Lab assay of single mutants.
Amino acid sequence: MDEEYDVIVLGTGLTECILSGIMSVNGKKVLHMDRNPYYGGESSSITPLEELYKRFQLLEGPPESMGRGRDWNVDLIPKFLMANGQLVKMLLYTEVTRYLDFKVVEGSFVYKGGKIYKVPSTETEALASNLMGMFEKRRFRKFLVFVANFDENDPKTFEGVDPQTTSMRDVYRKFDLGQDVIDFTGHALALYRTDDYLDQPCLETVNRIKLYSESLARYGKSPYLYPLYGLGELPQGFARLSAIYGGTYMLNKPVDDIIMENGKVVGVKSEGEVARCKQLICDPSYIPDRVRKAGQVIRIICILSHPIKNTNDANSCQIIIPQNQVNRKSDIYVCMISYAHNVAAQGKYIAIASTTVETTDPEKEVEPALELLEPIDQKFVAISDLYEPIDDGCESQVFCSCSYDATTHFETTCNDIKDIYKRMAGTAFDFENMKRKQNDVFGEAEQ
């Protein structure tokens, strides 16, 4: 370990593993360490099931009705991949897709007046949907046509809207959309967690709705994908990429100290040895004095023996409960997957309800979601602090990732990755940087 590296990475969460992969592909010498004996950090999948019970201090362990412990891979952080989103792009560019198998999530649902409705995925579904009345549908269709044709580089498509100054509230007004449709559009399509976006320039919202539609167009059922064997497969896929390009991995490796000289990182000390480096990437748990708390998320993992009611017996789905429907500031989400994804025993389902904490009784906040899941065989409640770095790391060369937020997709995580890359490399992130180099010394032969 007593060696000189360009970059040392602490923690094998998804953000850290993707950055480690990119740095290795770009010719950097990388050492990647984790104090845990497993990959994934906060974003790991726990197996066998006995391990999950232990982690949540349920000492009696799983009953026999849960089947074989080894058949379970339970995500600690519930997220899906947008089919046309940035993480899929990263997987394709790096060819990490060859280590993973994905399934399309069967449906996306939205909560309205105590019931759940399928988010329409085709024009026919939209016309048949009970989510809105006849005239509302016509106006909504006009709005969707506007979004589909919108091109930020072609003012002819703006229809009198200025993407940089017109607020989204004004765009909704222009198409005369009612409150329910606005809730549905902002939260189930643009996937905002709160209503803060309404008074911001509309460009980002329009682009988010386009991303949803384009992702949906790829597979038809929903815009989301999920990897077989759980999300823990993602960091491992990128760790393989890093290793192929010469990255060194050490799990179960305690970090005793991060060594600084004149305010700059110069190395990491572990078990009496020092590895030197020019730059350091880590998750917040490794540098508690360089991060601040930015809120909390509650996630309740529920094991069920039945599909969720009114989802047409889907073996995977997402449910969004827009905040307006339950008098909150932030949406509540449910991600459900099952034995069909090799993450649970035969006939079992895993539904994870999550939201940003707003009160001193977080469990009560998630109740509307839990009511949709009854009866629940077993619950595991996790309340996590969200951390963000206190500075950009440019001076110390210590670059810290943000905690995983309450969103049900990876777009915010990818933004964090691109942002850290830019601060480390001094140049904007470009997907081309992730391409495997042809015929290089570490390149794998085609399968």
Rank of each mutant, 00 (worst) to 15 (best):
I420L: 13
D196K: 01
F135I: 07
E136D: 11
V297A: 09
V441Y: 15
I352K: 11
D430C: 11
Y38K: 05
E371V: 02
L131I: 05
P288W: 12
I352S: 02
D416N: 12
G40E: 02
K309S: 13
S242I: 01
D313N: 11
Y286D: 02
N327S: 09
R328E: 13
R138N: 13
R70Q: 10
A188S: 05
G133D: 05
F380V: 13
D154G: 05
E358K: 05
T157A: 05
V7A: 09
F146H: 13
D377H: 12
D196R: 15
I352A: 02
Y38N: 00
K210F: 07
G443L: 15
L49M: 00
R68G: 15
R173V: 02
Q164L: 10
P63H: 07
G13A: 05
T248P: 02
T15V: 04
L241E: 04
P155M: 04
C317Y: 03
K329Y: 14
K210W: 04
D75V: 07
R290N: 12
Y99C: 05
G41A: 00
N415Y: 05
L81Q: 00
S24R: 14
E159V: 12
R169W: 14
A345D: 01
E395R: 13
R35L: 08
V171Y: 14
C302L: 13
R70W: 14
C302F: 05
T15S: 14
S401Y: 01
D289M: 07
G41C: 06
I308V: 09
F184S: 03
Y93L: 01
Y172N: 08
I22G: 14
Y38V: 00
Q179L: 08
S330W: 05
S20L: 01
S316Y: 00
G61W: 06
V88T: 06
E159Y: 07
M260L: 14
P120L: 03
S285G: 11
A340E: 00
L203R: 13
E16L: 05
V145M: 10
R276F: 12
E371K: 11
Q346S: 11
M90T: 07
K278Y: 15
D416V: 12
C17D: 06
M260W: 05
S354N: 06
I259D: 14
Q378N: 14
K364S: 05
T413K: 15
Y387C: 13
A126P: 08
R240W: 11
N130V: 06
Q200M: 13
A345E: 14
P284I: 14
M66H: 09
G237A: 14
M33G: 02
A148T: 09
T97A: 11
G393D: 04
F56S: 12
D2R: 05
A406R: 15
M134V: 08
E60L: 11
C414F: 12
K103T: 11
P368T: 00
H187P: 05
T185P: 04
M90V: 06
C402G: 13
R240D: 12
G133S: 08
V441L: 07
L91F: 09
A294G: 03
V291G: 07
V119Q: 03
K118T: 03
S354R: 02
L228G: 02
D75A: 05
F429S: 06
G220N: 15
V105I: 13
Q346D: 04
F135L: 11
E136V: 03
T407I: 06
D257C: 15
R173G: 03
G443R: 10
V268M: 04
N36S: 08
